[in-house]
Design a protein around this nucleic acid. Sequence first.
DNA 1: TATCAAACCTAGAACGTTCCGGTTAGGGTG
DNA 2: CACCCTAACCGGAACGTTCTAGGTTTGATA
Lengths: 337, 337
Amino acid sequence: MADGRVTIVDLARETGVSVSSVSVALRGDPGVSEATRSRVLAAAERLGYRADRRARGLREQRPRVIGVTFWLHQTFHAALVDELYAAARPSGYDLVLSGTTADRPVAEAVESLQHERCGAMILISPDITRNRLARLRGHLPTVVVGSDVKARGVDLVRADDDLGMDLLVRHLVELGHERIAFVDGGDAVMSGSRRTGYERAMAAHGLTDGIDLVGGYPTEDAGVRAAHELVARPRRRRPTAVLMHNDMAAVGMLLTLRGLGVDVPGEMSVAGYDDTRIAGLATIALTTVSQDPRTLATESLGRAVARIEGSAADPRPLVVAPRLVVRSTTGPSPRGR
Amino acid sequence: MADGRVTIVDLARETGVSVSSVSVALRGDPGVSEATRSRVLAAAERLGYRADRRARGLREQRPRVIGVTFWLHQTFHAALVDELYAAARPSGYDLVLSGTTADRPVAEAVESLQHERCGAMILISPDITRNRLARLRGHLPTVVVGSDVKARGVDLVRADDDLGMDLLVRHLVELGHERIAFVDGGDAVMSGSRRTGYERAMAAHGLTDGIDLVGGYPTEDAGVRAAHELVARPRRRRPTAVLMHNDMAAVGMLLTLRGLGVDVPGEMSVAGYDDTRIAGLATIALTTVSQDPRTLATESLGRAVARIEGSAADPRPLVVAPRLVVRSTTGPSPRGR
DNA sequence: TATCAAACCTAGAACGTTCCGGTTAGGGTG
DNA sequence: CACCCTAACCGGAACGTTCTAGGTTTGATA
C-alpha cells in the first residue's frame, strides 16, 4: 500500500488465500487449516499488520470497547484507571480513556466517547447532574464508580463513606479524642457523602457536640488554609484531631501544622482519605482510609461487561467496605492525658 | 433502530432527504439549502444523533485522530495531556489517550493506538528503545515530547535540561553555594539528560570538584532515602544544596530534611524540577524549574498535525527554554557567611 | 462408481460514513 | 425556442473488517 497501511487484503494477496480466510485465521476461529493459519500469521508479522479496530467495531454486532472518564489531575483516579486496565485485560474488552480537566467538563469527555461507539461507559466520580446522567443512560449502559449520584438504570459502585468516616472517628475516639473537626471538599463530587458520613459517625459515638465542620475544597491549598484557620482559634476551641476530605488536602494540613510548630500527632491528629501514594511516604505517614481501588475497578468493569452482554437486571448499588490505614499522624488526645 | 443506535440513515428517513445530503448538512459543507440543513440538524438533535467516528475515519482519507501515550501516575504528564487537549480543540483533531502503568508498558499502549488507526502519535517521555521507536516511526508519524531518545524521522520536542540545570546551578552559585549535590532519576527516562546537564553546569561554573552524584529514582521515596544518606555524612562532606531529578523526589527530600531537623534553606537548599502543582503549595514552596508544558504541548501537537497533513521536512528537534521558579527552599549558603 | 461428510475455503453483503459523479429543476440569455 | 448555468439533491462505490451461505476438495464408505 502506498500510504503504508497494511490491511487484511494485503495479507490475502500475499498468502494467496481469500480475505475471509485471512480474517478467520487471524482471529483463531476454526475453519482454516493449521498450514494456512501459520502462513497468514507469518505474513501479518512480516508486514506489521494491525487489525483496524474501527472497521472491526463497525461490522461486529457487539461492541468491544468500554469508555472511561476520569479527572486527569486526581491521583486516586489514576490509581483506578490503572486497576481498570488490569481488569480489562482478561475480559477481552478494550478501554478508551477520556480525561477531564478544568476546561474539559465531563459532558465533553462523554460526548467524545459516544462518538467512539463504546458499548458502555465507566464514569469515575463524575461531576454531572442526575438529569444528564439519566439522559446518558438512555443511550448507553453506564457505570458510575466512586460517587453517590443516583439515576435510574445506572450501575453504581462506590466505597462506603459512612463506614470509612466511622472507622476514622472510632479510631480517634479510642485514642481519647472528642473534638474532631472535618474539613470538607466543598462542591467536589464525594464531598457530600463524606460530610454526612462524618456527621453520622460523630452522632453514633455520642459526639454531636464535637461536630466541627470547616469549609474546604479537594486540593492541597484547602488544607493549608484550614490549618491557619484552626491554629488562629483560641486554644480551647481548637480540635484535637482533624479529618480531611482527601489525602491531598490532608498533606496541605499536615505540612502547614508542622510548619507552624504544631506537633502532629502530639498536639493535633490529622487523617486523610484515599490512601494515595503520598500518604504512604515515610515522612508523611498519613493515617487514612483505603477505598480498595482494585475491587472498585474489577466490580465496575464487571458490571459494564454484564450490561454489554445483555444483563437487564435492575442495578443495585455495590458498596465496597473501605479499610482503615493507621500510620503516624494520629495519636492519643492531648486532653485525655 | 432496535438497539438504540441512531445513524445517518435514520436522519435521512426522518427528514425525507438522501443520506448524502444529510452527511453534507451535518458537516456544514456547501451544497444543501439552509432549509434542509436546519431540518436535518433539528432531527439530529431530536433523536440524539452522534456521528460514528469509526465509520467516518474508515471512509475519510485523512485521519482525524492523534494518539497520546502518557504515564498515568506522573503529575507532569497529566499537565501535558491537559495542555494537549486544549491545543487539540481548535485544530480539528481528536485525541485518543493510552495510559502507561507498571504492567502496561509503552509498547502495549502504542499497540493499542495503532489499532485505533490514528494518524500520528505523541509519546510523552516514553520508556522505549531507539530501535522500537524507529520501527514504530516506519508505520506512523511519531512525536516524542520531553525525552531525549533520538531516532530517524521522529520529531522531538523537549525542554532544555542543560539550560534548566544551568539555571539552578547558577542560582545556587549566586547564593554562594559550591558543594551542590544531585540526586538522579536512576533509569527513568529523562534521567540521563538531567544528570549530564548537572555535570556540565557544574563544570561551566568551575565547580567540577563540587560534583556530587547520588543515585536515586523518580519518586518521593528516592528523596527520603537520599536525605538520610546525606545527613548521615560527616558535616564537612555534606553538600550545602541538593538538586533533585523531579519535584516528587524533591518533596521527599524536603520533608525528610525538615523531619530530621535540618533547616531548609538555612542549612541546606533544595530544588526540584517540573514545577508541578505541589511545588507551588504554600508549605512546600519549592524552588524548581518549569518546563513550560503549554509550549511543549502546542509544539508537539503542531508537529503531529503537520506530519499528518503531509510535511515531509526532516525533523529538527525543538528545544524549549525552561524557566527558573524561585520559591523558598533555596537560600544563601551557610558556608558563605 | 456413486454418495456422503468433513475439512477447508470463498464470494459477497453488511456496518455507517464520505465523496465522486451524476441528475433535476429553475432561471437567465441569446 | 434552444441553450447553458447553478443550486440542490441523489445514487452508489468505497473504507477494512466480519459473517452468512455456499462451494470445492478429499477420502472413506456403500
